[in-house]
């Protein structure tokens, strides 16, 4: 089996059941009449026409999380230290640097692309495969982007909100990130092998558990204090994406080599 076939099979194993479920349950919110100006404007601004379906998936994910992911994450916290969890996070972050570099290039942000490149080179070597993050210490902190944000810099609107089975909060534009992220990893450059596939599964699983472990207390708190956790997560997601886009457009990190010298003030 070729590497591409293997990766496609992995991806389809996750997405086909999710999409089938989505199709089976698809339903739309009823828009208020245009004569009701305030309600209609609020509906347009909310941009969540699939809210009934999204809420079904939110509830499904919530159950999966409550009875599977959260207990696993709590067990993981019990057997690891914060230091170990930080290193696991650094390792997963390092694997994502090549994809970030490509996205920054596509966005026309060469300096940020350079930062991602330097981070990947330094952390993969001096940082022992990304377990440590010496790049931040020498002035190249992690800068985040993804294909959804790349599309945003190209002027693609966010589109309706989507709550995806397994993946969680997203949108029509941002969902395009998942297939791109799936293939833009360093593992794609290595020859296909069963061991590599196993590594890919293990890394993805560990990253998921590690991330969930960091969110135990925050998610518990949102669920305990929000009146409508679905609406709260939707609001946080949208504000966060808008903020990320703003940061990308405003950022001017230093990069080696210094391709764009700043004019003297």
């Amino acid at each position: 089996m070729t590497k591409l076939h293997r990766r496609l099979r992995q991806g389809l194993a996750l997405t086909v059941p999710a999409l089938a479920l989505a199709t089976a349950l698809s339903g739309c919110a009823t828009a208020p009449p245009k004569s009701d100006t305030a309600d209609y404007q609020a509906y347009q601004q909310l941009n969540d026409p699939l809210e009934p379906t999204n809420r079904v998936f939110y509830n499904v994910n919530d159950k999966l999380d409550t009875y599977f992911m959260k207990p696993v994450a709590e067990g993981y916290v019990h057997i690891t230290t914060q230091g170990i969890r930080n290193h696991v996070g650094d390792f997963a972050s390092n694997i994502g640097e090549p994809a970030r570099m490509l996205n920054f290039m596509a966005e026309g942000h060469s300096k940020d692309a350079g930062t991602s490149m330097v981070r990947f080179l330094v952390n993969s070597t001096v940082g022992i495969g990304g377990i440590f993050d010496p790049a931040s210490a020498i002035g190249y902190p992690e800068t985040d982007t993804d294909f959804g944000l790349t599309l945003a810099t190209w002027g693609v609107p966010a589109g309706p909100y989507l709550y995806l089975p397994l993946f969680g909060p997203s949108g029509v534009r941002d969902a395009a990130n998942y297939p791109v992220e799936w293939f833009a990893t360093p593992m794609e450059a290595a020859p296909a092998s069963a061991a590599l596939s196993d590594f890919g599964y293990s890394e993805t699983g560990l990253h998921l558990v590690n991330t969930r472990a960091e969110l135990i207390q925050p998610i518990d708190q949102i669920k305990a204090t929000a009146l409508d956790p679905y609406a709260t997560f939707r609001s946080l997601y949208r504000q966060s994406r808008a903020s990320q886009l703003q940061q990308i457009e405003q950022r001017d990190n230093r990069t080696w080599p210094d391709w764009y010298r700043q004019p003297a003030q």
């Binding site: 409508d228 679905y230 609001s235 504000q239 903020s243 990320q244």
Partner: peptide, 23 residues
């Protein structure tokens, strides 16, 4: 926090309850 405003988040939280119950 990280570009998110808590007052906006809370307003959207509460608005979600009202809109889901016919305003």
């Amino acid at each position: 926090v990280a570009g998110t405003s808590l007052r906006i988040t809370t307003r959207n939280d509460y608005a979600g309850v009202i809109t889901d119950n016919g305003g």
